[in-house]
C-alpha cells in the first residue's frame, strides 16, 4: 500500500491483472517490471503455490501462483502469459504468474472499501484464511470491481503451511 498518509483525495496508481474474469491489483510502487512468460523449472517439494524458478537476465526468481493463493485453485500452465516481478523491498526475488496484465488504474482512497476485521468464529479453510489475509480492499471503478492485494504478504502466504510444520 502507498506509504504516504492517505487522504480521501489521494490517488494512487495500481497495476492490475486478471485471474480468469476477476480483476486484481497491486500498488505500482511494488512492481519492478512486467515480463513475458519464461520457461519455468518446477521445484518438487515446494508448496503448491510455488510454480517454480525462472531465469530473467541471469537472476533467478521464484514464481508464485496467485490463483492458488487468492482463489484456492491452481492456474493451468496455459493460463500463464505474463510475470509481474516485484521489487526487492516487497520480498526476496519473486514474481507472480498471471494470464493477463491489465491497465494501470488510478484509484482514489475514496473508492476503496476496506473489509472490517472478523469478529465471528467462522471456521475458515486454510485457503480461505490465506485469501482473506492477502486481500486488503476492493475498489469500485466505473464498471469494474478491483480486488486490492497486499504484495508483501504473498511470499509468507505461499509458505505459511510449511512454517506451521
Amino acid at each position: 500500500m502507498p506509504k504516504t498518509t492517505p487522504t480521501e483525495s489521494t490517488v494512487d496508481l495500481y497495476c492490475s491483472f486478471w485471474l480468469g474474469d476477476l480483476c486484481f491489483a497491486v500498488p505500482s510502487t511494488a512492481v519492478r517490471e512486467v515480463h513475458a512468460a519464461a520457461p519455468l523449472t518446477p521445484v518438487p517439494g515446494a508448496p503448491s503455490a510455488v510454480r517454480g524458478y525462472v531465469n530473467l537476465r541471469g537472476q533467478l526468481f521464484l514464481v508464485l501462483d496467485p490463483s492458488e493463493l487468492l482463489l484456492g485453485a491452481p492456474s493451468s500452465a496455459g493460463q500463464i502469459a505474463e510475470l509481474i516481478v516485484f521489487r526487492p523491498e516487497v520480498g526476496e526475488a519473486f514474481a507472480i504468474s498471471v494470464g493477463q496484465v491489465g491497465e494501470m488504474l488510478p484509484i482514489a482512497q475514496a473508492q476503496i472499501h476496506v473489509p472490517k476485521a472478523r469478529t465471528d468464529d467462522v471456521d475458515l479453510s486454510v485457503a480461505a484464511q490465506r485469501s482473506e489475509c492477502l486481500i486488503v480492499g476492493h475498489a469500485t471503478l466505473d464498471s469494474l470491481l478491483v480486488t486490492l492485494v497486499e504484495p508483501q504478504r504473498l511470499l509468507p502466504a505461499a509458505f505459511a503451511d510449511t512454517a506451521r510444520d
Binding site: G45, A46, L62, E92, F94, A158
Partner: peptide, 12 residues
Amino acid sequence: KPLHSCLRRLTT
C-alpha cells in the same frame, strides 16, 4: 546460485 531463502527448508 544459492536457493531462495524460502526454499532452504528443502534439504534435497
